[in-house]
Structure formats: structure tokens, C-alpha cells
Design a protein around this nucleic acid. Sequence first.
DNA 1: GGAACTGTACCGGCTGGACGGTATAGTGGA
DNA 2: TCCACTATACCGTCCAGCCGGTACAGTTCC
Lengths: 175, 175
Amino acid sequence: MPPAERSTRDRVLDAFETLLVTQGSRAATLDAVAAQAEVSKGGLLYHFHSKDELVDGMLTRLREQGARDAAAMSEAPEGPVGYYLETSVDSGSDFDRALIAAGRIAQENDTRASNALADLREGWFVVLREHLGDESLARTIQLIGDGLYFDDTTGLAEKNALQHVRDVLQRLGAL
Amino acid sequence: MPPAERSTRDRVLDAFETLLVTQGSRAATLDAVAAQAEVSKGGLLYHFHSKDELVDGMLTRLREQGARDAAAMSEAPEGPVGYYLETSVDSGSDFDRALIAAGRIAQENDTRASNALADLREGWFVVLREHLGDESLARTIQLIGDGLYFDDTTGLAEKNALQHVRDVLQRLGAL
DNA sequence: GGAACTGTACCGGCTGGACGGTATAGTGGA
DNA sequence: TCCACTATACCGTCCAGCCGGTACAGTTCC
């Protein structure tokens, strides 16, 4: 039996995220999303009655992915800090894509998206602080992760950035 | 004599940036920019013949502001690192606004904007590395600055973030 | 068992409004 | 008289959202 194929609903959300990430929110029109998902516009609107509902659907899925990620982080064999830094650079995973997409929406002054992102960040911070027992260090590492993430999503990524960060964090005994 | 009033051209660019920052690129329409600048649409198009020219005008002004900022950074009394971190949080200056606005444009896959931002970042990095004589530390500090900036522009800013960073950087002897 | 009906999943055409851009006539100040 | 605008009227395109329809798998009732 082949793996269960992705539902139309999921394919529509995938398409929405992909367009947001690669082309920006101006390009993520309902027509474009439908075309990318290989669904008619009517089919898209059957699953999501409005663009707003499409955003809601995306953020709901993001929160689910985020909860799984925080759990994986606290149990990672390389430790939470290593896991956090590695996953702050865009690996092209579904979760990364969803995260970047939500960032695009948040910038349109959408509080639903901002709240979802803030909640995700808080989840990571809790794991970092508990592991390190040092609030300043935890906050600083989180900022470094944000920086890695920002550079990555703005096309400013430095090849060796992660290596430089590891070097500095070793001096601090955080890795 | 009151301060020389801002030229219409500058007011249009200000308005464009303000809309990009506060509402996102979808909201930065020519009509909206004209209204925000208190200029007629015809007046706007008198100065910038197209939306593309408006973007070019904004990026040109940004590069000028950036050159001045890098110079100020290398001569700052509190040192380049302190100056860099302070100015990474959005102080609401014209330069901050221009920077955030360019980020919005860069996300629409506009290479002009990406190039402008990359050049600005390179300018800051050169100053940091020369001052610190330590590439890893310079890169890491730049990432922290990016993180501060990202959080600020996404509404995720932590009140005491800067204090935590100072604490950690003091342990590293970078401040 | 089969006709009548229901719910689900989708297609594709349409409309009204917004947007980028053009055009043009007019105005006030240097 | 030019420059720097304002005001208004358009045009073509794009976009969100709506609607009528189709296909088809189940269910109900006789």
C-alpha cells in the first residue's frame, strides 16, 4: 500500500505556505493558491470559505507542528541548544515553511499570526531556560536563533554562521 | 525660522515606508501612499513615474542613510558593539523605518532590495570585525543584532532583551 | 432491488471593487 | 512663463468572493 496521499485540504495549505514563502503575500492570491495546489478555485473555497479561514487553517496546523517541535527539542540527543540552533536555519522542512509563512502574515498586522508566533517562541524559550538555568543566556541564544532564521529567510544567510556561533557558545560553556 | 520643511518627494518616500512597515506591502498601494503623504495621486506620479521608481527612490535613500550609519558606528563613543546593539532595536528613527520597509520589499523577491540590505549588513560587519579582531564573535554579535531587529519588527520584542545580551557579552569580554 | 434523496468534493464562470497607470485641464507661486 | 503640483476621469487587469452546476458515494424508504 502506498503512503496515504495528502488530502486536498493539506495540499491547499501547503500551496498557500509555499507561495507566501517564495513570492510574498502579494502573490498568495486565491487563484494562485488554487493553481499551485492543482485544485480549482471553487474547490479551494469549498474547504476554506474565505482567505481569512485559509490563514486560520494554516496557523492551526502551525501550532500543532510547533508543539511537536518543542517536545522534540527537549528530548534531542544533541541537547536543546544544539537542536534549537540547527533547526533555526531553514532546512526546508514543512515546519520551517509554515513558520516563515506565518511571519509573512504577521507582517500584514495580523494579530492571530503574531500571537501564534509569540506562543511558539515562548515554548522554545521555556525549554532553553530550563536546560541552561540561565535566563540571560537563554534569551541571548534565542536571539541568535532568531538572527539565523531572519538571515535565512531574507536571503542574507552566511555559510559558516552556525560554525561561528558554536565556537562562541563553547567559550560560554553553553554547548 | 522653522526647520526646512520636508520636500514632497521625501514625504512620499516617508509615506511609502510607513505603510510598508505598519501595514505590509499589500497595503502600500499608490493611492494609499498618496493619501498618507497628503499628495494627490497625480502629484505622486509626477515625482515617481511608477511603483518601481518609488522602490528605487526608497532604496537609494536607504543606501545613503546606511553609509552615514556605518560611519557613526565606527566612531561611536560607546564603541561599535554597543552602538550596533542599541540601534538594532527599533528606535523609531527614519533609518529604522527605511530598513524595515526594505525588508518587506525584499520578501517580495525583489533583488534590488535584497542587494541593498546585504550591502548594508556587510558594512556593519566590517566595522565589527575590525574592532573585535574576531570573526566568530563578530558574526555572532551580528546575528544577535539581527535577532533583536527581527523580534522588534515582528512584535515579539522582549523588554529586557538588550540587558540580557549585554550581560552575556560582558562575560565574553566583548563589551 | 431500485427510485428518491442527501452530503461531500469539486469545477468554472461571473461580478464588483481595487489597483497601477494614463491623460488632461486647471491652479498658485517664483 | 515655467514648475510643482491638484483634481478628475478613465482604462485594463487582477482579485476575493459568490453561485450554479456536476459527479458520485451512501442512505432511506417502499
